[in-house]
Design a protein around this nucleic acid. Structure first.
Lengths: 230, 230
DNA sequence: AAGGCAAAAAGTGCATGCAATTGCCTCTGG
DNA sequence: CCAGAGGCAATTGCATGCACTTTTTGCCTT
């Protein structure tokens, strides 16, 4: 979880499988409820079933996959209730990160946050959604790191990745880009002032709004899944 | 495998191994840094290495075990920094749970919380540390469940179990029992009033105090480990 | 006596094989 | 035509085996 090999390409086959399968889940390529057949996955990635099984076990420990004994694994199905609880948690976690960031960010962290944030305004003007998404991710990462608390960082990143499939469509709402930027701006301003209460509130509100935007799309994802594994 | 698994119920061999090894880590029987040899564990539990490997992988995904590629697994070593960050996170998580509990607990949940809490005062008078610990665990569980948010519940339980090895000694401090009860009392009172702000603050303070008490003991655990696997 | 190197030992990583379980399909009796 | 039993194919769970990596040991050199 707080593994250091985040960017490094992993050594073992199992790690690669965890990332490969995990990515496909997080990016929505594999949809909730979809069956994860050991043999097919093994064939697809040209390894034996053993590393696939280990990977599925780890993904199950992370909550991305559900395993029914003797009945195979499926991409974790997220109920509306659970989804709501994750979004609510996310709001609280981000609030904590923002609050701590307001109190603890070093001056260079603050500077970097502000600069990146200002840079992202260009993407808003251009309506460059892909590019804005990059800045957006970076922005939130800076908040998590700025909290100077590795455990909160890990919990937040984990929760965020679990929500990723449900957040992807959010920027398709018209005007969402500009609104997101303004919300970020509130957070940045509060952090620069060292106003931890305001920063926390702004961050919580930001996520809450995203959550409402996403709920709409989550509702679509109801149809059963039938798709090639890779 | 020769013998049927009859002693422990539930699930596959891997699940049993995860619980068996996880318990030994969480209860402090296996100490941080201790080497987890696949063959020894397999022999100890009379299974092959395969389920042991899977279990170690899952425990590693949970953060209880550290795995170095080709170099074996050890019980996760927790630095002072990381420990502090976990305690701080725990305080925030409990605060959230208490806050939500104050807002959302049903009346029967509130009643049960109050009754159990009052019952535990008996243990304090008797100085029954073991029994109080049971009530204490139950008390916190009620808080987590009372938040009516499964994800926060999961995060909190997970964090709590990771902190378990470092919390065990806390009640050995003289007068800690009575103090703990009074802190619980503040939380309960606030929840009964529906005062979410006060409940959150009381819960945060409660954990903070435990954290300080535990830090003392954590410092002892420095010596390198040499102990039989089971 | 200390250091370095090579071979052996130990231990991990993955593939394969087989037993056990599940799910499906068919067949039969009502 | 339907319900249930029985059997078969597909799939999972675990054990075992082998290749590869790391660690240790013991010998040789300086």
């Amino acid at each position: 979880m707080s593994g250091k090999r985040s960017l490094i390409r992993s050594g073992t086959t199992v790690d690669q499988m965890v990332r490969a399968i995990g990515d496909r889940i997080v990016t929505g390529y594999l949809r909730p409820g979809e069956k994860l057949d050991e043999a097919s996955l093994a064939a697809r990635f040209d390894v034996s079933r053993t590393p696939v099984r280990e990977a599925l076990g780890q993904l199950s420990a992370m909550g991305l996959v559900e395993r029914r004994p003797n009945r195979g694994a499926i991409v974790a199905v997220v109920t509306q209730d659970h989804l709501a609880s994750m979004f609510e948690s996310m709001a609280e976690l981000e609030a904590i990160c923002a609050r701590f960031s307001a109190e603890r960010m070093t001056s260079s962290e603050r500077r970097a946050l502000e600069i990146e944030h200002q840079a992202s305004s260009r993407m808003v003007r251009l309506g460059a959604e892909e590019d804005y998404e990059y800045f957006n991710t970076e922005f939130h990462s800076r908040l998590y790191r700025g909290a100077h608390n590795t455990h909160i960082h890990d919990l937040t990143v984990m929760t965020r990745s679990r929500l990723a499939p449900f957040r992807r469509a959010q920027f398709m709402l018209p005007g969402r880009l500009a609104k997101s930027w303004q919300e970020h701006d509130l957070i940045v301003t509060a952090i620069m002032r060292g106003d931890s209460v305001a920063a926390g509130k702004a961050a919580r509100d930001h996520v809450s709004i995203v959550s409402e935007a996403s709920a709409v799309f989550a509702a679509d994802d109801r149809q059963p899944i039938r798709r090639d594994v890779a």
